[in-house]
Design a protein around this nucleic acid. Structure first.
Lengths: 135, 135
DNA sequence: CTGGACCTTGACACGTGTGTCAAGGATAAA
DNA sequence: TTTATCCTTGACACACGTGTCAAGGTCCAG
């Protein structure tokens, strides 16, 4: 498929797809006329990239972990240098820390929302109520 | 405490602490001489901010969710406008998506690392081995 | 009192991800 | 054939988080 279609399917823009390519995240073929030609599996790939970017990982890291994310699983031994493995290991640790942080804070927000709702729900008719701000 | 001490305790820099203040994330008192004076609880606060920033949340969002994160729990009804609550709700959803993305990809990397290790571990003596790159 | 360590504000600069625009080529439909 | 739509590359610009530096104030130890 061409760049516009992939952009629509992944809710991105052609601009970004070209940027990801320049960062080495995707490498589409070229048609005879010079147009980029994307395989179908790149839809998932791009969505994966978007998710990771949104989760705080820079393209430099995403580029390194992408070989681990293939489906079907293809192990690239050429990439598996000791330094590379160490990078991956430390990166999974950072990801774990991020997951913990996000989970903890999300749950705190949920609890907050739960309390606020439980206080406002019982009001069934337009009743005058005054909430004193705690500050 | 003063800015330098807080910076050390949170592994940041005075520069960043002033930046977070300008973004409205923290509001230290001022001593008579103009120096910022930070309460102890701000250590955790700053660590929280750092974690969220590293997880992809912008200061604009962090500022909005910080009131939910107080310990002990202090509900600020003044902040609980309907739009605010909607923002928080949609933000928890984004956080959930981030968590899922990070977890999924972290586990994929772990599996990859597991396979690579299981293939290289059995080598106990320096044996000549050739791994054909899959590319 | 002087030196050093710390604080203040303000400015300039950088990397990264993204938006937008210009100038031109490819292609398909009227 | 013209027109519209898509593609190409390249450039300029922006927001954001961060580093660094300058010029000066505060304070403590020697």
């Amino acid at each position: 498929m061409r760049i516009g279609e992939l952009a629509q399917l992944t809710e991105t823009t052609p601009r970004l797809l070209r940027y990801y390519e320049k960062q080495g995240l995707i490498s589409p073929r070229r048609a005879a006329n010079g147009y980029r030609d994307y395989d179908d599996y790149l839809v998932d790939r791009v969505l994966q990239i978007r998710g990771l970017l949104d989760s705080g990982l820079p393209t430099r890291i995403i580029k390194q972990i992408l070989p681990c994310l293939g489906t079907p699983r293809t192990i690239h031994f050429a990439d598996a240098t000791p330094e590379m493995l160490a990078t991956l290991e430390s990166e999974t640790e950072r990801m774990t820390r991020r997951i913990e942080c996000l989970t903890h804070n999300r749950d705190a927000i949920r609890e907050y929302l739960g309390v606020v709702k439980s206080l406002s729900e019982p009001v069934r008719e337009p009743v005058a109520r005054v909430f004193e701000p705690s500050a």
